[in-house]
Design a protein around this nucleic acid. Structure first.
Lengths: 207, 207
DNA sequence: CACTTTCTGGGTTGTCCTGTCCAAAAAGTA
DNA sequence: TACTTTTTGGACAGGACAACCCAGAAAGTG
């Protein structure tokens, strides 16, 4: 019994409730952070009562990890087809900026916010977050690789470095923008990272 | 009485104790985060007992804010003279990378870590953090301005943007590196940001 | 229609943790 | 030395919160 003995089979109804809980938790965490969100809050927000929460999750930590997983996956969904052109990268960056403008102030429940709060305290969550970041980086990396293969990027470009740089720029920009309640840092950061990547455009490319 | 009525005058001894508390809190928060650090932990680590903590600070929040202020100031101390040359910027970045290597794994109690944890939940702390970031940005900005005035950077360089981009790169890189337990993201991020800044070097400069 | 498994409700418990109180020791001041 | 202010000690109350238990409703399964 290495794995928890939670409901082995979930009925559609049960699955819906489970998702409702994760949704509510995600929203609350986005506004008040992990520490500022109690089980009781999640309960009432999800309109489930009593011990449902512990019926679907072993502990608060398990719930948080479910939120992390969902957030990590959400970026890999249909939203982002492929980051394999300068235009696609630009659109991706603009979407991030737009998102920041929408939730002006209150943070979005991105991996970055979660990482800031959990990396130091919870080792398991940290691992989940690290995996999430790694997948995001690979997503970017695959796009860049496609660009290089198509001759849009120079052969000598260090794609791994570029991917990490872009991801860091996003995360740092979001962190600063959320803290300072202003988009400027995020815009500046993403613009810089994209311009840097563009500086590796192959000479003969249509660009 | 807008201000708290904490000890109006501190004797040298009292001040030493107060500093000892902040030191202990800073160290503990660096390892376990704000939420993972209790008053009790701080007490024993600082080797003060009982209600000393509330003798010097109104609340846990006040203590945290003191930690924030200290961290914000620490970067403006003698460590950084002036970031007004490419070499100085490079050295600054290398120092950050070095610091990350030293505390491999456990986070340093930088503003970024604190921001990730507090921005969403505590408005007062968020303001303190935002001010801290602003001062850091100005520190960078002043350096860049000096470089431009000396003719090392092109006139058309958007220094404010560059400063924010560099700061974001640092914060994002640290966040990723701490979460992934690897320096690569920070290195990549800072290298990219510095290279981008260098791309604004004035043509005639000795570079 | 029996029977099993899953789902839901609410109450409860025990723990952790912030913040307070009271009183004594030490340090400063005259 | 007499007196005031600051500093220290430990114990304690009050509240918040995660987690558990039991029983009943609903939904699947043969």
């Amino acid at each position: 019994m290495t794995e928890s003995v939670k409901p082995r089979r979930l009925t559609p109804k049960g699955l819906a409730t489970r998702n409702r809980i994760i949704d509510a938790a995600t929203a609350l965490i986005a506004r008040h952070g992990v520490a500022g969100t109690g089980i009781e809050d999640v309960r009432s927000a999800a309109e489930v009562s009593g011990s449902q929460l512990y019926h679907y999750f072993d502990s608060k930590q398990a719930l948080i990890r479910a939120v992390i997983t969902r957030q990590a996956d959400s970026a890999l969904g249909p939203r982002i087809e492929a980051l394999d052109s300068f235009e696609a990268l630009r659109a991706w960056a603009d979407a991030a900026i737009e998102r920041q403008l929408e939730n002006d102030g209150r943070g979005d429940c991105s991996l970055g916010s979660l990482a800031g709060e959990l990396s130091a305290s919870d080792e398991d969550s940290r691992t989940d977050l690290a995996n999430g970041f790694l997948r995001w980086k690979d997503l970017i990396l695959n796009g860049l690789r496609a660009m290089r293969d198509r001759g849009e990027l120079r052969e000598d470009a260090e794609l791994d470095e570029l991917a990490f740089a872009l991801l860091s720029a996003l995360q740092g920009g979001v962190l600063l923008s959320q803290t300072m309640r202003h988009v400027q840092p995020l815009e500046a950061s993403l613009n810089a990272a994209l311009a840097y990547i563009r500086s590796f455009a192959a000479p003969g490319s249509v660009a």
